[in-house]
Every structure is written in C-alpha cells, then in structure tokens.
Design a protein around this nucleic acid. Structure first.
Length: 590
RNA sequence: GGAGUCGUAGUUCAGUUGGUUAGAACGCCGGCCUGUCACGCCGGAGGUCGCGAGUUCGAGUCUCGUCGGCUCCGCCA
C-alpha cells in the first residue's frame, strides 16, 4: 500500500473534519466522469464517501482517475472539504462533505462484476451464491451480517452476566435414533463405524448439568439431513442453553429478559415482557397450529356441535365419523371474487382439505352461499351467532378429521392475512406455547414417538397415564413463538432414571435398546443428576425476523441451495477413490 | 418421493396465433463533457433462447424428457 495507512472509514467523515487530511481505502462503487471533474463513490462495509478528482487540485491524479472502474480497490489521500450547501447529499451519512483527492493508489483492479452491486435489483439466487463475496458487499447483505454479529454479542453479554458458562461440545458424536436424519462421518480408525454430526448438543448439555456446570450456553452449529425450506438449512445455528435447579417460570423470565435485551440492542425495539402464554390445546383450538401468528385475528371457531344434527349431509357425516367442523369469519371480506374463492380453495387443497365451504353475509343478513340451502333458518342463525357474523363478512368452513381441519384453516388464515396485507414485519408478537403432549402416535411406525424429545419430563399429575393412555400425557415442554415462527423450544428434563425408563417403555424402546443408544445418559442420571431444564433458539430464524427477511439464507454468510449444494465451492463433490478405501467404504453405484 | 413456478445479451426482463434479420433498460467498450451523486450526450460491441429428443415446410414459442434456481407438500423429536 506504499506506506499509506487507512485513517478513517467511508462512513465516519463529517463537517467537523473539514480541512483535515485523511486516507480512505475501499471499493469503487460508481464513477461519474465529467471530463473535467470526476466523482467517485467509495464504499467499504461501513458506508460511502464521495471522492472528487479535480485537475485544479492535482492534475496527474485526476488523469489517473479516468481509468477507475467498478469494484476496483483503491487508496485515496486527500483533504476533507465541506460541500456547497446546495450540493449536499442527504442520502449519505457523509453527504455534507467530500474528499479532494491528492493521491490515488490502485490496490487491485477487478473484473466487471457479474451482477450490479449498487442497487436492490433482484438477482438470481444461484448467481448471488456463486459470487457470494460480491453479494455480501451489497449494503443490505452486509447489514445482515453486522446485525448477526450484534445479536450474538448481545446474547452472549446477557448470558455471561447471568452467570452462564460457554462450553463447547463435540461435533463428531454418536448417532442416536429418533428425530431427524443424521449426517454421518465414517471413521477411518474404526472401519465400518460412523460418527454423526449433532442435530443439537442435547445429551451433552444434560451431562454438563450432571457435571455440576449449573448454567451452560453455546452458540453452536447443528446439522440435520432433511429437505430444505426457506427457513431450513442443513447446517444452522442454535443458541443452546441448559440450567440446573430451575423450573419453567425461571426459564420464561430469563428468556423474556434475553429477548428484550436482544431487540433493544439490535433493532432498538422495546419489548414488553412477560409474553402471553397459551397451552398447546388452546393454540390448536384457536389457531389450528402449535405456532400461532398472533398479529391478527381470524381465529378458528368450533361448529361441530352446532352442525351435529343439521341438514347438510357432508357436515353431519364428518361429525358422525369423529371429525370436526370449524370455521373462520373473514370479517369484511364479503367482496371477495369468485376467483379469490377458487384460489383459496386450491390453497387449502394442498393441505388435504377436500373442500372449502364459504358464505357471504348480505346486507340484510341473508346467506349467499352454495351451501345455504342445506340449512334451516334456525341453523343459519345459530352458526352466524357463534361466528358473530355481520353483513359484509365472509365465512369459511372446513369439515374433516381434526388434523386436516386444523392445518387447512391455519394455512387459510395465514393466506388471508397475506392477501389483506395484515402482516407487519415491524410488529413482534411473542407467545409461549406450553403443555404439549409428551407423545404422539406414529401411524407408520405403529408406536408412540416423542413430540419434543425422549428426555422431556412428563407433567407430574399425568405420570399414571404413561402406561395406560400415553397419548394424553402432557409434557413440561415449551416453545417460544414469534409471528408464527417457532424461534425456540425446550423443556424441563427427566433427571430420574426410573421415570426415564418409563418414558422409554411408552416409546417402545426396550431396556437393551435404551442401554445401547442412551446407556451413557441413563448411567449419568444415577450419579446425582440435578433437576434441570433448558431451551434452544434457532438463531437464523430469529435473525431473519429481526432483519425483516423471508429466508434465513439472507442472514447466513454462505448458505446452501435447496438441493443442499454450494454454488461457490461446488460442495458436495466427488472424492478420490483412495479417500474412500481409507475409510473402508466400497461404493457399489458404479 | 410429489406439486407448482421460473430458465432468452453480463444483469433484470419483453417477445402476439408457430413465420423473414430475437428486442428494451441497465451494465460493458470508445468519444465528448468542470459539480455530479441512478450525471448527461453521441457511437459501438454483445445471444448455444438451460440441455436433449420430438411434432412441423418452419420452434424462443407446441409436446416429451432432462438439468438447475425458487416456493410448497411429505420429511424436519
């Protein structure tokens, strides 16, 4: 750099520095060449400063500036100059000043970038990922990484001040049954055996509690070999924590404080804890999902009893077969077109709904609906009353088995909210969802499976149901939901071996299998395991919401495509035959 | 495993019912320009229409397959 040293960033020059000589280093964002005078917008990750090359200041330097191109890396030495009042740029933090260049060093040239970096133009994701280092130069993307840094710092500071220890856990660990598909790593030293990458440090953090560490946290990478989504990557980051000698209330308060700190210190939003709470049963009943978006209404209303003996066969038969009939009052949507209704019907069809009955309430209260004729006046009035229907309203009904009704109406209310633009990304609606079932019946495997994970404690008063009606046992698990996204979840754990064994029994895991898969945990529980519990947050999802983005890829420096590839490095890739034989792997696909 | 959608210049897109030489904007290259900040003006270059078959006198356009991006279902304790 020829003895030059950067004195300031491209964002911290103001009128107070007028007359001072500074040296900036950065990338050429744009060149405006007027022949006589040349303007360069110089960019680094902190901001943009205008540099002026004038023949009156330094003719050779001015001549040199003609050659500058986009994304060239340069060093500029010059004097800070106040801009004439009419030429200030209010869009730039440094818009009151400019640099009169007296020296220009070309630190590196650049090819013309494959896509423009200077605006918010939508560029194909493939190209952005292939040239991610260019994509990340764009101020919006840089801001996401900066936000991520600030968020992690705020969380660490909060947990450090609450006496937590940051302890690392293994990345090469043991594959365990249940849960997501594992990423496997073959062991060279132990032919035919495999490590698994952790889906979460669950067992290790429990062992740390047995070890007396009391309060543990880690910002930790986790791996799940499942199909990707906008909010799911094969590797993602958890803020993982575990505490001894606590119960639910202490964890709720701790986390509410952490969220308040996080939101204040990153985006300057003041949250107002405590957050509302809702049981799983209530969430399913009112919203049809265990992660309700509580920013808007359109709640589900049960009509099963009201239609049990009604004249509409479709509803009656569903009820007779043990199904549900539920409805949403899309208040004020009576002007939806036939196409709107068709689109919404198609939308709920993807979630298994065989139909979507609708009713428009006319000015005189009459029903405009394909199904109006199947009901008596009394039946219509009864349902309208339950739904508090008023003229101009639009009612939607779904009749089916409970899971279908709930999913269809849950997705319907989200789609309605999107269409009506009710989703304000600057509104932050938290809710704790509690009292989850401990187990659910897996139709395919013909056995019960853990809703949360197998180490979640059952609620004391439901313990006796474990052997008789396992599906009715409630757990001490909780999720924190923000704007319809599950951002974190955890539970009070089982710390007694006898209860852990009873849960394994309910899961159909026999003693031998339990010993083989989790023997180390069971043994640890016999060596003075303290009562403990914890929670883990999906850092990427949390950041997506903080950044107002709709995919976690935008808050991850180097994410993967939906096919789990990396266009930048071309991972995954083939490996040499020798590498496979060293690992005792004998591929048979060629 | 399945559904949808997109793929045309470096980028973002348009391209009619299948019809002659595939367009625009931005970017790029050259020239002019002393106050711009998405500078302006003049000129120019730039295309395997993702790939492969098929239908047709003729395919960017229709059909089938395939590859890739994205969204979703299943899956994700």
């Amino acid at each position: 750099m020829g003895g030059l040293k950067r004195s300031h960033s491209c964002n911290d020059l103001g009128p107070e520095l007028v007359g001072q000589e500074v040296t900036l280093m950065g990338w050429v964002l744009r060149r405006r060449d007027h022949g006589g005078v040349i303007f360069i917008d110089l960019r680094d990750r902190r901001g943009i400063t205008q540099v002026v090359f004038s023949p009156e200041v330094n003719e050779p330097v001015h001549a040199k500036a003609h050659r500058l191109r986009s994304e060239w890396v340069i060093a500029v030495r010059g004097r800070v100059s106040r801009r004439p009042a009419t030429m200030e740029n209010p869009n730039l933090a440094t818009g009151a000043i400019e640099i009169l260049a007296d020296e220009l060093r070309l630190l590196n040239a650049s090819q013309t970038p494959p896509f423009p970096l200077d605006e918010e133009m939508e560029v194909s994701e493939n190209l952005r990922l292939k040239y991610r280092y260019l994509d990340l130069r764009r101020p919006a993307m840089a801001a996401n990484l900066i936000l991520r840094h600030q968020a992690v710092q705020a969380i660490r500071a909060y947990l450090n001040s609450h006496d937590f220890l940051d302890i690392e856990t293994p990345v090469l660990t043991k594959s365990t049954p249940e849960g997501a598909r594992d990423y496997l790593v073959p062991s060279r030293v132990n032919p035919g055996k495999f490590y698994a990458l952790p889906q979460s440090p669950q067992l290790f953090k429990q062992l740390l509690m047995v070890a007396g560490m009391d309060r543990y946290y880690q910002v930790v990478r986790c791996f799940r070999d499942e199909d990707l989504r906008a909010d799911r990557q094969p590797e993602f980051t958890q803020v993982d924590m575990e505490l001894s000698f606590v119960e639910e209330e202490e964890i709720y308060a701790l986390i509410e404080g952490m969220m308040a700190t996080l939101f204040r210190e990153t985006i300057g939003v003041a949250l107002a804890p405590p957050f509302p709470r809702m049981s799983y049963a209530e969430a399913m009943g009112r919203y049809g999902t265990d992660r309700p978006d509580t920013r808007f209404g359109f709640e589900l209303v049960a009509l099963t009893e009201a239609v049990r003996n009604c004249g509409f066969q479709v509803f009656r038969q569903v009820v007779e077969k043990g199904g549900l009939v539920k409805a949403i009052n899309a208040s004020g949507c009576g002007d939806f077109s036939r196409k709107d209704l068709d689109d919404l019907t198609a939308h709920v069809a993807q979630f298994g709904a065989k139909g979507l009955a609708w009713v428009k309430i006319k000015e005189n209260g009459d029903w405009q609906s394909p199904i109006a004729k199947f009901f008596t006046d009394e039946e219509r009035a009864g349902m309208a009353g339950i739904l508090t229907a008023a003229p101009g309203d639009l009612l939607f009904f779904v009749a089916d088995q409970p899971a279908v009704v709930h999913q269809a109406l849950s997705e319907l209310r989200l789609e309605l909210a999107r269409r009506l633009k009710l989703l304000d990304s600057r509104q932050y609606s938290f809710v704790w969802v509690t009292d989850f079932p401990l187990l659910e019946y897996d139709q395919e495997a013909k056995r019960y499976a853990a809703v949360h994970h197998p180490f979640t404690a059952p609620q004391e008063e439901d313990l006796e149901l474990l052997a008789t009606e396992p599906g009715r046992v409630r757990s001490r698990a909780y999720d924190l939901v923000l704007n319809g996204t599950e951002i974190g979840g955890g539970s009070i754990r089982i710390h007694r071996k006898d209860i852990q064994e009873r849960v394994f029994a309910a899961l159909g895991i026999n003693a031998d299998e339990a010993a083989e898969k989790f023997g180390f945990l069971l043994q640890a529980l016999e060596f003075g395991a303290p009562p403990h519990g914890g929670i883990a947050f999906g850092l990427d999802r949390l950041l997506m919401i903080l950044a107002g983005r709709d995919t976690i890829r935008d808050v991850i420096a180097f994410p993967k495509t939906q096919k789990a590839t990396c266009p930048l490095t071309d991972a995954p890739s083939e490996v040499a035959r020798k590498q496979l034989t060293e690992l005792s792997l004998r591929p048979d696909w060629k």
